[in-house]
């Protein structure tokens, strides 16, 4: 248990730092790389929680595909690649106050609601159980999500192509 908590602590600290990096760095490419750290940390947390399938999907889909997409987006829009002071707008301080307020509300709510709840992981959840759930119980949402992806793909192509 202690090992797990230590692992959590290290991962969480890295994720917090990286998340702040995503929203504070002055280099767009660095922001994308910080995002990789956050997502990889998230995947590690999933493994810590014994949910390995979703962890690997996170690595494959997010880090493998989405981040690459982001880098393409950065290149195609000629985003400033060098340190640049203009990445924040003038709403920085109101936004910070609002975000802190939201974090405070969420945090105090959670502490109030779950302050003694423990997670007891007996064994990791097998991928077979996940696939069973996806293809039996949640088959219709699964299909719908497939159609949604297709629609998004077509939509993205239509939006982005030059006529």
């Amino acid at each position: 248990m202690i090992a797990q908590n230590v692992a959590f602590g290290i991962l969480a600290a890295a994720m917090v730092v990286a998340a702040l990096g995503v929203v504070r760095t002055n280099n767009v490419v660095h922001a994308a790389l910080y995002l990789v750290v956050v997502l990889a940390g998230g995947a590690a947390q999933f493994i810590l929680l014994g949910q390995e399938f979703v962890a690997w999907v996170q690595v494959l889909v997010y880090i493998g595909a989405v981040i690459v997409l982001f880098l393409f987006g950065i290149m195609l829009t000629r985003a400033p690649m060098h340190p640049d002071e203009s990445l924040d707008n003038d709403l920085k301080w109101p936004a910070a106050v609002t975000a802190l307020f939201l974090a405070g509300v969420l945090g105090s709510l959670l502490i109030d609601a779950f302050h003694r709840t423990k997670i007891d992981i007996r064994q990791p959840i097998r991928t077979a159980a996940v696939t069973n759930a996806v293809f039996r119980t949640y088959i219709i949402p699964f299909e719908v999500v497939g159609v949604l992806l297709l629609a998004a793909l077509v939509g993205a192509v239509v939006l982005a192509r030059k006529d």
Binding site: L91, A99, L102
Partner: peptide, 9 residues
Amino acid sequence: ALLLVLAVG
């Protein structure tokens, strides 16, 4: 978006 988040909070 800021107003929205503030309101939700």
